[in-house]
Amino acid sequence: MHPGKTRARIAIVGLFLTVLFLGDRLMARAVDAVFMRTKFRYPMLYAGELPADIVFLGNSRALHMFHCPAVRETTGLRAANIGFNGLPTIAMAPLWHDYLEHHAPPALLVLEVSCVGREDEDGALERFTTCMRHSDEIASQIARRNRLVYSASQLSHLYRYNSELTWRSLFFLRNSDQDWIMEGQVDRSEAEELTDADVPSLLRSADNVAAFQRIIDGAAAHGVEVRLVHAPYLTEYRRHLHDAPTWTNWLQSELEHPILDYTDAIVDPTSFADPIHLNAGGARQLAIRMARDGVLPSQDD
């Protein structure tokens, strides 16, 4: 082959790789800039725009149980919810750490505990590659748990934004997602047909307990009071969750921290969006109940 041709081809390959690399980095920056401009909870967390007196953390149960507008209305205090659907317990500690890094410590942290008894959904942690640029803690968790995804995120920064979080953030370009809650009411007939097989028992995971312990310790170090809450279930669901009391006792002794049992606090089925999540009305009732019990402070406190 003609040496000139070979050189030209090497140059084309080199140019291609350069364009690919630079484009990847530049576009990742651009996507990140868009992500950070949204009013979605995690960009706001990393931008330090979620100052609060009360912070809620957990998976979808925390997300749909502790409704910030209802808490604000009931307590008169600023509230922020940094929980998320399917949020793995192991990702909660880094998020809490990052919250403290970007905000003044709140007065109270409320943790919904049922996530400790759940197995992490496949790929749940990997959704947080979107936050890797802003959180070394998240990055190291991903590196530890999924080497392949971590390597891919290092190779392509665009790949980090290939996540539900990025797409969801686009829904909140203007309005905050802190008032996000499920609408509608649970289908009673379906709920009545629930059997033991439909209700997974609560697991006893040492990893999840350790992650929770880190959150509690981190809060204590910053003088933040922690309340652990086992949030309500629909009565028809709770009836099949046979191990809930013993599991709560077990977790209480593992963490050496009291757990407030609200599993039967809401009995009105119209307050539930589905068997394990409240709707807006239910969340308001729960906030009032928790404030009345002194679990949530009021402005006067």
Binding site: I12, F16, L20, L158
Partner: peptide, 14 residues
């Protein structure tokens, strides 16, 4: 080059 890079970026992002 641009077309191939665009395809690869799309694969990475979407």
């Amino acid at each position: 080059i641009m077309a191939y890079a665009c395809l690869l970026w799309s694969i990475a992002l979407f």
